[in-house]
């Protein structure tokens, strides 16, 4: 905060020779601060893997990483003098902003998702849910054998074709719009009306188990989605940050090639 404030004050106070830009003495100063900050922020990727050496707690590093990351946006914006163009300099700026933005998305997910995840899991782990679903599948398959063909087919679809994950969309949305279990649950109450006696009881039991499976599936999918959310921003943050490193170096070198 202080850093941002100091830079902003300097920016307002500074009277550039023609208009504010990166090549005034203040521009070079802000650029140097910003560039060094970016290198330090990138170092976090290495620092977090070094468990043995403790120059400061990783927690402290992460906190600094977040705050200084936001500060970089302010400093770099002042460094540009609010002038952007379709060139390498603009590219570096845009990559920087996108990197920080993806990081902030990560901050948001890390702040909100774990609580939701815990609530969703209850006492189970994802593995436990999967095992339970597998158990249910076995029981359902066994029980459903005595159901009429039409219903058996539905139940078999649920047992053999229900998917969990497997594609980017399903993992990230935590849904499967074409889930055979959901379809079975939708159809069975209506289709099972005509059943009688023992078969009707079996149908009820199967239906109850399907509901149970559906509930577990929903939780498992949600859990999968939460895990994916905790990761997905990194798939942008990390590549963008390295792209930024390349663009930053190109920016700095090109500026001094044509000084």
């Amino acid at each position: 905060m202080l850093l941002c404030l100091a830079c902003a004050i300097a920016y307002v106070w500074h009277e550039p020779p023609i208009r504010p830009y990166g090549g005034t003495w203040l521009g070079y100063t802000l650029g140097t601060i910003g560039g060094l900050l970016i290198l330090w922020l990138l170092w976090f990727g290495i620092r977090k893997r070094r468990y043995a050496r403790h120059s400061a707690s990783l927690r402290g590093w992460l906190s600094a990483h977040v705050y200084l990351g936001v500060a970089v946006v302010v400093i770099a914006t002042l460094h540009t003098g609010f002038e952007l163009g379709w060139n390498i300099h603009g590219l570096a700026y845009v990559l920087m902003v996108l990197t920080v933005a993806s990081g902030l998305v990560g901050v948001y997910f890390y702040a909100t998702v774990p609580a939701l995840m815990t609530r969703n899991r209850g006492q189970d782990t994802l593995d436990a849910m999967l095992l339970k679903i597998a158990d249910l599948d076995r029981n359902i398959a066994h029980k459903a054998l005595s159901l009429p063909d039409e219903l058996l087919a539905l139940v078999n679809d649920s047992v053999h074709k229900t998917r969990l994950g497997g594609s980017f969309g399903r993992i990230l949305s935590g849904r499967d719009p074409d889930c055979p279990t959901a379809r079975a649950i939708r159809v069975i109450p209506e289709a099972g009306k005509s059943l009688q006696d023992e078969i009707a009881n079996v149908d009820h039991e199967v239906y109850a188990m399907l509901l149970r499976k559906q509930e577990l599936l929903t939780r498992a999918r949600r859990d999968m989605r939460f895990k994916a959310l905790m990761e997905i921003w990194l798939f942008f943050h990390v590549p963008l940050s390295l792209a930024l490193l390349a663009a930053l170096l190109a920016h700095v070198v090109s500026v001094f090639v044509y000084w």
Binding site: L126, L130, L131, I133, A134, D135, D137, R138, A141, V159, H160, T162, R163, L164, G165, G166, S167, F168, I171, L172, A220, M224, K227, A228, E231, I232, L234, F235, V238, P239, S241, L242, A243
Partner: peptide, 25 residues
């Protein structure tokens, strides 16, 4: 028991469906 479901439900993370941060970066 019924390993079939567990077999099918293996790709539960982004990494498991072939996304690679380092390669893209």
């Amino acid at each position: 028991g019924a390993p079939e479901f567990l077999q099918r439900a293996r790709q539960l993370s982004l990494r498991s469906i072939g996304l690679r941060k380092r390669t893209v970066a």
